[in-house]
């Protein structure tokens, strides 16, 4: 067996808890592609949202401390799966990398750590798949082509906005569609794929998120989607949690499966995918039976 190439991996809190399927499937598909996600030995919560006031260095300390952990591990990059961790760490790295004044201030405060040199860059796993591995390699690895499966990508906010951290065109991204095609599934166009799900408003304005979910789901359904694919544990939670509310309150509402992009890949690769909604599992099985007969 070939030696696996290492990627310095930052999981984030939610992947260690409610979004463990994201990590399980992420590890499995990367291994199938010849990579190992090597978790930082020590890390802390990135803060989930980037602090937007210029004078607030306190909230940069958490993310910068994670950049220091990567530096300590001898790595000049951090790979994330969670899109919120991606955005927070990425924006913090841009905030301090190359800004000596900010670096000096933060380093002086963190007098128990080694100085951060400002050299660690932050990347999302989708960038690695697209730019380093390439869709051809992904396609080569497919053992269970997902032909006939209609996939609605849900990008949410933090992979695409603000512009300076966007991994793709903020208004017309294609990375999830391209991945979908590499897995032989069909990407679906619909109006809400780059919209906000309501994010943390679910804590004290759940009604807002229910309303958002209803619109997002209905649009995806109208466009003929079988499944929604995302890279954000908060989008995943919001869409699945409030969908239960829709099932309860709207007659004949049919639940739409929501999975992480790594789970979709795992289905195509035939590797450990974590928990997959039963309806999707059945659908994938049906597709493959039909293909087998045809």
């Amino acid at each position: 067996m070939n030696k696996l190439e290492k990627l310095t991996y930052f999981p984030g809190c939610t992947l260690k808890d409610t979004a463990s399927d994201f990590e399980i499937s992420g590890m499995a598909v990367m291994e199938a592609l010849g990579y190992v996600l090597e978790e930082l030995e020590r890390w802390n919560c990135c803060g989930t949202v980037f602090s937007l006031t210029d004078d607030d260095l306190m909230h940069q300390i958490g993310p910068v401390r994670d950049l220091i952990r990567a530096q300590e591990a001898g790595s000049e990059e951090i790979i994330t799966l969670c899109s919120m961790c991606y955005a927070t760490l990425k924006r913090s790295s841009l905030f301090v990398n190359g800004n000596q004044e900010r670096l000096d201030k933060i380093n002086a405060f963190m007098n128990k750590e080694i100085d951060y040199e400002g050299k660690v860059s932050v990347h999302h796993l989708l960038e690695v798949l697209r730019d380093r591995i390439g869709w051809e390699k992904v396609e080569e690895r497919v053992t269970n082509p997902l032909e006939g499966l209609s996939v609605a990508p849900f990008y949410g906010c933090t992979l695409l906005r603000p512009q300076e951290i966007a991994i793709d065109d903020p208004d017309a991204p294609t990375v999830l569609q391209d991945l979908t095609q590499a897995l032989w599934a069909t990407p679906i166009d619909y109006a809400y794929s780059v919209e906000c799900c309501g994010a943390y408003q679910v804590v004290d304005h759940r009604d807002v998120v229910i309303e958002r979910t209803h619109r997002i789901m209905s649009a995806a359904r109208r466009a003929g989607a079988d499944v929604i694919v995302t890279s954000c544990p908060l989008c995943h939670f919001n869409l699945s949690d409030t969908q239960k509310e829709l099932v309860r309150t709207i007659p004949d509402y049919e639940e739409m499966p929501i999975i992480y992009f790594t789970q979709l890949m795992a289905l195509g690769f035939g590797v450990e995918a974590g928990k997959i909604p039963a309806s999707l599992k059945a659908k994938v099985k049906r597709l493959q039976t039909v293909k087998g007969e045809g």
């Binding site: 909230h59 300390i61 958490g62 128990k112």
Partner: peptide, 18 residues
């Protein structure tokens, strides 16, 4: 928690509080 590590610095038992 903002991961400022002030708790760890304050600990007389040298615990990694943060």
């Amino acid at each position: 928690c903002v991961s400022c590590n002030t708790c760890t610095k304050a600990c007389p038992q040298d615990i990694e509080v943060m």
